[in-house]
Design a binder for these strands. Structure first.
Lengths: 224, 224
DNA sequence: TCCGTTTTGTGACTATGTCACCGTCGGGAC
DNA sequence: GTCCCGACGGTGACATAGTCACAAAACGGA
């Protein structure tokens, strides 16, 4: 038996053979280039996406034209927001944008519905994904309301840094990630730089003192 | 055929006769007194609740001990947060508290799972409830990030007022509703009072100028 | 009535968001 | 090359919101 994408998803590995077969034959692997809009408000989707590679950022456009970052879908996770809207035949209010080149499994509505009906394991997978997303939103809200901006920025920088300790993002991008203003990011990161925790150049932040950032994060009982 | 609670729920009215029967026999109507904690973090629930009467407030305790209001479940809605955790066997991180005396239908895990498997209509009902909750959270986040506190307070007062234009809530309660500090509510409502929009007494706000409040809300393109 | 608790009010201060504007950088057009 | 434009980052001044400390007022029992 050859290696299947199904094994990349923890919750799906226990699927019975016939369900696996149905899932594989009833779905399709798709590739999407970085920057593509995967879903948009007012446009109802007909597929549930399971990410194999890359990341998708989900954000919402405010009435005022500004944007808030909501969450990021990583490889091995599902873009569950679409599910609700798929089955509920409702439109969603958020944008989904491929941050990197993305490959994903697209499960069309009919297959999805079928599997939810037939397989308890698949149901649990779906509900677990929901649960995860909702609790993520809860912590986001908590964070926005109670956490200081410097702590949140430090935390985010640690999260976004690649193996070389570099974050490729403009201040403006970081600002929408945190739901704050660009100026605030500028000021806060100047302060970080002054303390020797980071070095900055155009569109890029290099972490030179992870420990300092980490200490700041930890000092406020944050969850990271 | 006698009147059933099922008809109080839009999405369930189209259930086929056998599913209706199964739902009715497999569930139970429960009553809960105001103030009761319906669910709590770290305590996994075995029932999906559909509210028949009353309201439930869902809020999260922060690490710092403070609380954020997340959303309110009204009659005719389901307390869908429990669902995810029920099926995903995960604990949730939020509190649910009966704000008023509540009567609700409790659907145990087994019945729920059964119905999700069997009935497409029931599935759609569940996913629609999710969808609703998630988009609510999105607008909440949007609101917290972009909307001014005075606008949000005005909006909330209009929402919470009963037929006599009275809101029964202390400043502290209003503060957690908005995810802000009590002092801010005090100051803002003093300002509203100065403008003749409200009158205050201990634990109670009387709206005397709805139009003023409404104008403030409308003036900032808010959704109300 | 007296006392303790809850609710509300307020000043001073810090943190964050907004606005206006400028300097810098980098990449084409020429 | 150099000119120019647009994107990016920095900064001061000010408005709004959150925090802290503390006090006054309202209520409810003993």
């Amino acid at each position: 038996m050859k290696e299947s994408w199904i094994d990349s998803f923890e919750g799906l590995s226990r699927l019975s053979a016939d369900i696996r077969a149905e899932l594989e034959s009833g779905s399709q692997i798709v590739s999407v280039r970085a920057g593509t809009q995967i879903f948009a408000p007012g446009q109802s989707s007909d597929n549930l996406l399971l990410l194999l590679e890359g990341t998708v950022r989900v954000q919402q456009k405010s009435d005022t034209g500004r944007e808030v970052f909501l969450y990021r879908v990583h490889a091995g996770e599902s873009c569950v927001l679409t599910t609700a809207c798929m089955l509920a035949h409702e439109d969603y209010s958020a944008d989904g944008i491929a941050e990197t080149d993305v490959s994903a499994v697209a499960i069309p509505r009919t297959t999805f519905d079928e599997l939810v009906a037939k397989s308890k394991t698949f149901r649990e997978f779906v509900f677990a994904a929901y649960s995860r997303r909702i609790t993520d939103l809860f912590t986001l809200i908590d964070d926005i309301v109670f956490q200081r901006v410097d702590v949140r920025l430090a935390s985010r920088l640690l999260e976004l840094a690649n193996q070389d300790d570099v974050v490729n993002a403009t201040h403006a991008v970081l600002a929408t990630e945190l739901g704050t203003a660009r100026e605030v990011v500028s000021r806060t990161s100047s302060e970080f730089q002054r303390r020797g925790w980071i070095e900055q150049s155009r569109g890029e932040v290099r972490l030179t003192g992870r420990s300092g950032l980490a200490r700041l994060v930890k000092s406020s009982g944050g969850q990271g």
